[in-house]
Amino acid sequence: MEEFALTKIVNHHGTEREKLMPILQEIVDKQSYLSDDDMVKVANALQLSAAEVYGTASFYSFLPTQKRGIYVIRVCKSIIARMKGSQEVLQAISDQLNLKPGETTADGLFSLEEVNDIGWSDHEPAMLINDKVYTDLTPEKATRIISKYLEQASQSKLSFNPTQN
């Protein structure tokens, strides 16, 4: 993330230790993950060591420290999700995007993950794409949802561009 954007986030929240989570959360909201450089800058601003920032971020499943796509797909893997067919849903998405769980597409658009209970056992299978929820999924429904994202991305020419943050 560019320096001025990051500084803006830090200035907005403040530099007390208790602001670390909101700062990291906002960076992830904006660019899907925390780069090494982001963590170093945040550490400097908050008078922490980079290892402490990394240590904190890596505790939380939703604060990735490795590159993620613009859209992070998180399919629930709770026992209820599994009973209701989450693996078929995961497989369908995986086939559609040619992407295994834990990976990011080459164009930097999608990452696919399996996550613990996301609080929708009454409507499993369920998934999150960034902070949108999709429930009562079937492989077909999931495929349609992903297609919409693909369409939207191609319309807005959204793709990962390494020179842009």
């Binding site: 209820i80 613990n116 209970d117 609080g119 929708w120 056992s121 009454d122």
Partner: peptide, 11 residues
């Protein structure tokens, strides 16, 4: 922070 598998009442 209801994270217990199978709970969603707080939602």
């Amino acid at each position: 922070d209801e994270g217990e598998p199978g709970t969603f009442k707080d939602r």
